[in-house]
Design a protein around this nucleic acid. Structure first.
Lengths: 197, 197
DNA sequence: CTTTACAGACCAAGCGCTTGCTTGGTAGCT
DNA sequence: AGCTACCAAGCAAGCGCTTGGTCTGTAAAG
């Protein structure tokens, strides 16, 4: 019954606590190496009791991803809405994504990146559909910047490069180090618009 | 007994064929979802016979990584040696890493990135030690460019950003598409030195 | 105000299957 | 004779999930 912090955007119902615990374990050990007995133990119930809340183990993984996509799409939308210039919007997007991925929803976001293929093809399609709104927000901002002439590379490719940069961050970024999240966001922004911090 | 192409740098001894097949399966399904029976079947032997060549399943994974690290470290060294300017060296490094990661050792490289945590801590340490030469080649080139004033960001951070960009490429880059590998390398190079293709 | 009904949350036990790996032996090449 | 490469059979452990039942809180029925 190890305590595990709740993830932003997930409530603390029995189901929600199960999701937070599962996300934590999935990140640390991977989906396949995490047993339903592990998850159950970390919230202090019997393994069989899990199936009162979820039909299958895979459903738990999908639910984690669904929650985190919804929460972070909303965050991304707010980030864009608060800025008027395309460059300001892009900076806000990078900040928001970094916040998601190394901050308050880190476990669930990392799980989404690394355990994607553990979903059945059908669930992958469903999750991809949810993701599409999220990705469109990026593409809109990048397209606008591109049309301004801020960079010449194809916006789709640029998004891929950014995805790689932010997605790798959990493997090295230290939240307690001297490099702040906003510093890093500005460094990444400069990779797009060509300024040079 | 599905045919699977050999990976560059791995010979075609029984052991080598096992390694290539394993790398292929590990990439497609992940280490945990690949059974020793899968690997055996793909080279046409019985599952038990695998353990004549490797002590454990984990040893197969480690051997895949070991081979690919050695092969690609040599390739990186050659790439650097063939160029004199720091910027030329960095371009060569990016090309070589992309070649590794989406080209002739793609399976094994992808496996190294995505299945890293399936290694025991001891084997992780050993593999990390092998990697250190590889990483030093990057840092030397980036350091030289940094001292030339080609970019202001900390070289260590810049390497992390590049690792993310190249490491994500297998998830979207299409070897048969109109964007060539060299095009992509130049685009990534521009993220560092601030030119703008 | 009590009784009955019922649903949500959980337990104790365990089933059936898959897994990594072992064992004892054989065929062929040198 | 001995080594490399393999087979056939199967074991022990661990896995996801099922089953039948208990407890507790809520709320309508008498």
């Amino acid at each position: 019954m190890a305590e595990s912090l709740a993830i932003n955007g997930i409530d603390d119902s029995p189901r929600g606590r199960l999701l937070s615990a599962a996300a934590h374990l999935f990140r640390d050990k991977g989906f396949d190496r995490t047993t339903v007995r592990d998850i159950a133990a970390s919230v202090g119930i019997q393994s069989g009791s899990i199936f009162h809340h979820f039909k299958t183990k895979e459903d738990i993984l999908y639910a984690v991803m669904e929650e985190v996509i919804h929460f972070n799409t909303a965050r991304l939308r707010d980030a864009v809405a608060a800025e008027s210039s395309p460059q300001g919007q892009l900076r806000a997007l990078i900040r928001a994504e970094l916040q998601s991925i190394v901050g308050d929803t880190a476990e669930a976001m990392t799980v989404m990146v690394t355990e994607w293929r553990c979903l059945s093809e059908e669930k992958q399609r469903k999750a991809l559909e949810l993701r599409s709104i999220y990705e469109q927000l990026w593409l809109d901002a990048l397209q606008a910047l591109h049309e301004q002439g801020a960079f010449k590379t194809d916006p789709f490719i640029m998004r891929r490069l950014l995805t790689g940069m932010t997605g790798w961050a959990p493997n090295w970024f230290d939240r307690d180090g001297s490099l702040t999240l906003d510093n890093l966001a500005d460094i990444m922004l400069a990779r797009v618009v060509g300024e040079n911090p």
